[in-house]
């Protein structure tokens, strides 16, 4: 029997454990924090949860088109590969901080990677 990545990571509890750490990293990262300025923090945190649930292979209804539409206004502001890499880096660092195995971190990074062209609107 194979369990999903989401279950192996610890499901909803893992998302909740990761959200503060991840969001704190993003807000402290000068390469990308301007994209997150001026947005209500609580709404933003809910979106971070949606992001993490997605990246952890959890249940969600996002399509490539949603990713495209959701980030289109950021692409206009100059969102690029460099910013994308920074987000993936923060994601991996968050999981390491939570003692997630390298194997699982790689799987999560792959899911995030799979959205690159949609997020960057290419």
């Amino acid at each position: 029997m194979t369990t999903s990545l989401f279950e192996r990571l610890g499901g909803e509890a893992a998302v909740n454990a990761a959200v503060d750490i991840f969001y704190r990293k993003v807000l402290s990262d000068d390469r990308i924090n301007t994209f997150f300025e001026g947005v209500d923090m609580e709404k933003q945190a809910a979106k971070q949860k949606a992001f993490l649930t997605f990246a952890f292979g959890g249940p969600n209804n996002y399509t490539g088109k949603d990713m495209r539409d959701g980030h289109a206004h950021l692409v206009k502001q100059g969102l690029s590969d460099e910013h994308f890499d920074a987000v993936v880096e923060n994601l991996a660092a968050t999981l390491k901080e939570l003692n997630v195995s390298d194997e699982l971190v790689t799987e999560v990074a792959q899911i995030a990677e799979s959205t690159r062209n949609d997020v960057l609107g290419r």
Binding site: E12, A50, T53, G58, P59, N60
Partner: peptide, 10 residues
Amino acid sequence: SSCHSGVCQT
């Protein structure tokens, strides 16, 4: 609704 798993609070 969005996640249907008690995560997103939508």
